[in-house]
Structure formats: structure tokens, C-alpha cells
Design a protein around this nucleic acid. Sequence first.
DNA 1: TGCACATTTGGCAATATCGCCAAATCTGCG
DNA 2: CGCAGATTTGGCGATATTGCCAAATGTGCA
Lengths: 106, 106
Amino acid sequence: MDAQTKALYEARAEIIKAMAHPTRLFIVDHLSRRKACVAELTNLIGADMSTVSKHLTVLKSAGIVEDHKQGAQVYYALRVPCIMNFFGCVESVIKTNANRQLRLVK
Amino acid sequence: MDAQTKALYEARAEIIKAMAHPTRLFIVDHLSRRKACVAELTNLIGADMSTVSKHLTVLKSAGIVEDHKQGAQVYYALRVPCIMNFFGCVESVIKTNANRQLRLVK
DNA sequence: TGCACATTTGGCAATATCGCCAAATCTGCG
DNA sequence: CGCAGATTTGGCGATATTGCCAAATGTGCA
């Protein structure tokens, strides 16, 4: 694999890596419905606010979300809605896996 | 976030985590065109065969690829073609990011 | 200015991931 | 059986990720 091809796949992996965490996945899912500030997300998630903030930083660096201040609060919004396409396919993988499991039992 | 919701996002993250590596992304991309055996992929990737084999194990455990023996060789194939939808969106994230960069410079 | 609230940053321990090497398996065949 | 080729597994050091706490920073307002 030449350097350029490698760089391409590394760039892609960066984006996907940013999604590869349950909390960040939840955040993306939630933001796909409405923008939210850190405190709001922290509440829903039930982790330390600093933890949530760092997850948001990861998503932001990847370019998946964007933030804007509104008073003392920082609101985050989904920047690339097509990310939601991931879920459909992921769900189908999970379903396929489950079916395979079932077949083994039956 | 209640335990069930958490479990759901964890399951989803498992799948995405399996994709979150340049080499594995390359493998998935390649397998979307044709099935291939380990030696073949190893050649294209240029890493130790044991490394490639382990990447394939990760993809297989996630249910993204499946394998079948053909003589002494093990062929891998994409099990869930919709995974390829990821690329389109990832590409658009990369493009959006690049445009943002440009705007900063201009 | 100084307080209260919202968020980010620094730091650290626990854990997970990665890639290579060496050794173990597995397969077809003489 | 025993060898050669293909693949997987075990193990290890290096590196990256994660989550919490404490401390720092930013913001609106009295």
C-alpha cells in the first residue's frame, strides 16, 4: 500500500474512530434530533461533565459536530447529517449477527 | 442513560470500532470488490501476515466479514455490503473539513 | 470587581489496541 | 507419516483511549 493510499485510509479511519464509542454515538444520535449544550448531554449520559466535554472535543476535531456559544453555554450541533446513515447499516449488522446466533441454537 | 439504552449503544459501537482502523477499512473496501485470501490481503497491505490475520479476526467477530476455507487458504468476504455506505459519508466529512480549512486561509 | 454557573484543560491510573516475532495449527500431497 | 505452504495464536513492548478529579478558564450579572 503506497503512502498516499495509506494516508487516505488513515483520514477515513480518523472520522470513524471518532464515532467508535458508545457515548459519542449517543451524542451524535441525540444531536441528529436537536442541538444541545454540554450540561444537557451530561445529564442524559450520566458521566462527569469533563468526560462529556472531551467526547465532544473528539467529535468536533473530526468535523462531525460544531459548536457555538450562547451565553455561558456551548451548544453542539451535528455538522454532517449523513452520519446518521451509519445507524441503519450498523443495526442490520447487529440483526444479521443475531440471526446467525439463532440459527446456531435452533 | 438506562442500562438497556447503554447496551444498545455499546453494541453499535462494537461494530463501528471494528471499522475504525485504516488497515481494516482498506480490507473492507477491497472485499467489497472481491473476496480475497489472507496472503493476498497481506501482500496489498504490506504488514506481517499475523497482523492482517488479527485484523480479519476483528472484522469477523463484529460480523462484518465471513470466511470459508478453500484448500489451505482462507477466503474472506464482505457479509454486509451496506457497510460501504460509510465511505460516502466519511468522504463528505473529509471534504467539508477541507473546505472549512480553505475558508480559514482565504 | 467579584460571584455563580458552564465548560474546558491538565493530570493520572486503568485499560485497550497495535504490530511484530516466534511458535503452534491446519491442509494437501508425496 | 512427514514436509511445505497458509493461517492463527501467544506473548510482549509501545502507544492510545478512557474516565475521574481538581484546577483553570470563560461568561453574564449584581
